[in-house]
Amino acid sequence: MGDVSDYLNELDGADRALIGAILTRAAELVPEASEGRSYGMPALRYRDSPLLSVMSTKDHIGLYPFSPGVIDAFAGELDGYSRSKGTIRFTAEHPLPSSLVERIVLARRDEIDAAKAR
């Protein structure tokens, strides 16, 4: 078990299913990713950098790609979702489209690859 698996085991219901699906898909897209922690959150890590975290709160689910640039790159597709420089907020009743989540994960992976290539 790891930090992400342990966190998922603590969740119930729709949030657990949705968060689990996002993290499973992210791990499929970036198979080199491993479970760990970033900024105190259970997260998938890639090449020693945080790739993605998804956390449930009382009022929403937060998707954390650990990159303001990645969030900004998809700002035009995030109308109707609350966001800040570090998170995109959504609910199980109003989830992010799967294809958008996939593109966010791949954009973050590519950002990490580019940073490591320098």
Rank of each mutant, 00 (worst) to 15 (best):
D12K: 14
G13H: 07
G13P: 06
G13Q: 09
A14C: 08
A14T: 13
A14S: 12
D15T: 13
D15R: 14
D15Y: 07
R16V: 08
R16C: 01
A17S: 13
L18Q: 08
L18I: 09
I19A: 01
G20N: 04
G20P: 08
G20V: 08
A21K: 11
A21L: 03
A21I: 06
A21M: 04
I22P: 02
I22F: 15
L23M: 14
L23Y: 06
L23P: 04
T24Q: 15
T24V: 13
T24N: 12
R25G: 02
R25I: 05
A26I: 05
E28M: 10
L29M: 06
V30F: 05
V30I: 10
P31A: 10
E32P: 05
E32M: 12
A33R: 04
G36C: 06
G36A: 04
S38Q: 09
S38R: 11
S38A: 15
Y39M: 11
G40W: 07
M41K: 13
M41S: 11
M41E: 12
M41T: 10
P42M: 07
A43F: 02
A43W: 04
L44D: 00
R45Y: 07
Y46H: 08
R47A: 13
R47L: 15
D48R: 09
D48Y: 04
D48I: 05
D48V: 03
S49I: 01
S49Q: 13
P50E: 03
P50N: 04
L52D: 04
L52E: 01
L52T: 10
S53F: 02
S53K: 11
S53M: 04
V54N: 04
V54Y: 04
M55L: 15
M55A: 15
S56F: 05
T57S: 15
K58M: 09
K58D: 07
D59L: 14
D59H: 14
D59P: 07
I61Q: 06
G62I: 09
G62R: 09
G62A: 14
L63V: 14
Y64T: 00
Y64L: 05
Y64Q: 00
P65A: 01
P65H: 05
F66T: 07
S67I: 02
S67T: 00
S67V: 01
G69V: 06
G69I: 01
V70Y: 00
V70A: 01
V70C: 02
I71N: 00
I71K: 01
D72Y: 01
A73S: 13
G76R: 03
E77S: 07
E77D: 11
L78K: 00
L78N: 09
D79S: 14
G80H: 08
Y81T: 07
Y81K: 08
S82I: 12
R83I: 09
R83S: 13
S84W: 08
G86S: 13
T87M: 09
T87L: 11
I88R: 04
I88W: 02
F90L: 09
F90G: 02
A92N: 01
E93F: 11
E93A: 15
H94M: 05
P95I: 11
P95D: 11
P95S: 09
L96D: 03
P97M: 06
P97T: 10
P97A: 03
S99I: 11
